[in-house]
Structures are given as structure tokens and as C-alpha cells.
């Protein structure tokens, strides 16, 4: 069989095997590379650093469980940064299928590690139906939407919430997102109510978000695992994103190699098909 034929008829299980190995191997043999910080990540980090210590920030967990490997490390980095600067976090989610549970787990784990207390240093408001109504309603009064938090505790009994009732009481919004609700955070919360927004998103979402950054509607952006790794580097706390970049590097290289090989096969077979 000619090389062209072989390349054209390559069993895709070989591709699956190589992809699997590229993900698994870096777990056992960690490979780390130096990360160059992009301007979008630096801007987000600088914004967080510029906020006075003790500021109240909002960290919406607009994520489905399916994207956790990408979004959870970003969320953890954001929460760690906030706690390190003694900020208070108000969290919520417009993703009914798991967002509040993810927020609860991440905040409690990071809160316990930083010695923070629920209700004083951070709260999780949970989920309410219809994100358009929720985002608009919180501009007037958070209490009109959330009378209780995720656990059913009345919001008024949470010390942190005593002075927080709308976006005006929040210094910054650091959204973690894997879906289009982030567009509404920008268009409703940012544009209508004047809140300052930055976000950590999945890599596939990042291209769209560049338009908001360029228009000044978002102050900064962490795009996928790379964005998370850059933020971890700025924080001086390399963790899951930094480790994940080893696997991501191998996968990207492998896919590029597949594209090149596929095209070599394509051009060889096209040349062979030409009449002599």
C-alpha cells in the first residue's frame, strides 16, 4: 500500500490512542513551561490588585460541570486572589444544572484553606430561574431576587449582605463562565448598571470576549487553561491550570501534526490521481 493510501485510510483508533496518551502521560510526568502573560490577563490581575482590601466583589459561577477541568482552576485562582486581598465574595449562578453546587464546593474549600467564614467573608446566593430577570432585578435590589441564600438562610441574617443590595455595592464582578450568560452580564449588568466586569472563560468562548475587551466593556479576560496558568503565575501559586498546560501543549502539537499528516496524504493522493 502506498504512503498516500496509508495516510488516507489511517484507523482513527490510532488517533484516539495518541490523544489519550498525550492527556495521561503529563499527569505522571509533569511537564511545565514558562508562561508569557497576555495583556488581557495582566489587566484583570491589575484590576483585582487595584481594589482596596476588604472590597466586596461578585464571583458568578456561570458554569456547567462539563467544563470544570478548564473553569474550576480559574475560579480557584480568582477566589484565592480575592481572599488573599481580604476581599468579600458574593457568589451566585444562573446555571441551574450544577452552578450553585460547584460554587459551594469551591468557595467552602478555598474559604476553609484561607480561614474565611461563611456569611462574613463569602456567601453563595445560589440559583434563581430566568437569568435576564435575575441580572436586571439585582440592579435594583438583590433582595428582591434572593431572599435566601443557597442553603435557605435568609439573606438579611448574613453579616456580609447587610451592606450589599445591588451592583452599586459591589466593587468588581469576576465572572467565571462557559456559556452565553456572560454576554448578558456585559450588556445588562455592565452597560445598564455600570458595573466593572472581568471574566475567566473556556478557551472556545474567549474569541468572542475579545470584542468586549476592545470596546472597554470588560476590563480583562482569562481565556481557558492558558489564561488560568497565566493568572496562577501572576499570583505565584502554580496549580491545576499550570499542570494542565503540559497536556494541552502535547494535544495542540499532536493535532497540528495530524493536520500536516492529513494534508500530506491529501496532496500525495491528488498527485497520484493525476493522469500521467
Amino acid at each position: 500500500m502506498s504512503l498516500a493510501k496509508r495516510l488516507e485510510s489511517l484507523d482513527r483508533r490510532w488517533i484516539f490512542l495518541l490523544i489519550g496518551l498525550s492527556v495521561v502521560l503529563p499527569m505522571f510526568l509533569p511537564i511545565t513551561f514558562p508562561e508569557r502573560i497576555t495583556s488581557q490577563t495582566q489587566a484583570l490581575y491589575d484590576t483585582m490588585e487595584s481594589l482596596p482590601e476588604g472590597s466586596v466583589i461578585m464571583v458568578p459561577f456561570e458554569v456547567w460541570p462539563s467544563t470544570l477541568p478548564e473553569t474550576e482552576p480559574i475560579a480557584r485562582a480568582a477566589v484565592r486572589h480575592a481572599f488573599r486581598r481580604q476581599m468579600k465574595i458574593v457568589s451566585l449562578s444562573n446555571v441551574g444544572g450544577g452552578g450553585p453546587s460547584i460554587a459551594d464546593r469551591v468557595l467552602r474549600e478555598e474559604g476553609n484553606a484561607a480561614g474565611k467564614v461563611y456569611g462574613i467573608d463569602y456567601v453563595n446566593l445560589g440559583y434563581r430561574a430566568n437569568y435576564l430577570a435575575v441580572l436586571s432585578g439585582m440592579g435594583t435590589s438583590i433582595r428582591s431576587i434572593y431572599q435566601t441564600d443557597y442553603s435557605g438562610t435568609p439573606v438579611d441574617s448574613l453579616p456580609l449582605m447587610r451592606n450589599v443590595d445591588s451592583y452599586k455595592d459591589v466593587a468588581f464582578i469576576f465572572a467565571i463562565a462557559d456559556n452565553a450568560t456572560l454576554d448578558y452580564w456585559v450588556s445588562i449588568v455592565g452597560e445598564r448598571f455600570g458595573a466593572k466586569i472581568g471574566a475567566g472563560v473556556t478557551a472556545v468562548m474567549a474569541p468572542k470576549m475579545f470584542a468586549y475587551i476592545d470596546a472597554g466593556q470588560m476590563v480583562g479576560l482569562l481565556g481557558g487553561m492558558k489564561g488560568g496558568a497565566e493568572y496562577e503565575k501572576l499570583l505565584g501559586l502554580p496549580d491545576q491550570s499550570t499542570r494542565g498546560m503540559g497536556a494541552q501543549s502535547l494535544i495542540h502539537l499532536l493535532i497540528i501534526a495530524f493536520i500536516v499528516l492529513g494534508n500530506v496524504g491529501f496532496f500525495l493522493s491528488r498527485r497520484n490521481a493525476r493522469p500521467a
Partner: peptide
């Protein structure tokens, strides 16, 4: 990831 790699090889 598996299907993207396979599709990249065959269709790109």
C-alpha cells in the same frame, strides 16, 4: 478532544 483530533486529520 478525540473527535476534534480525528476530524482535524480527516477534514482540515
Amino acid at each position: 478532544a478525540f473527535f476534534i483530533a480525528s476530524a482535524a486529520y480527516r477534514a482540515f
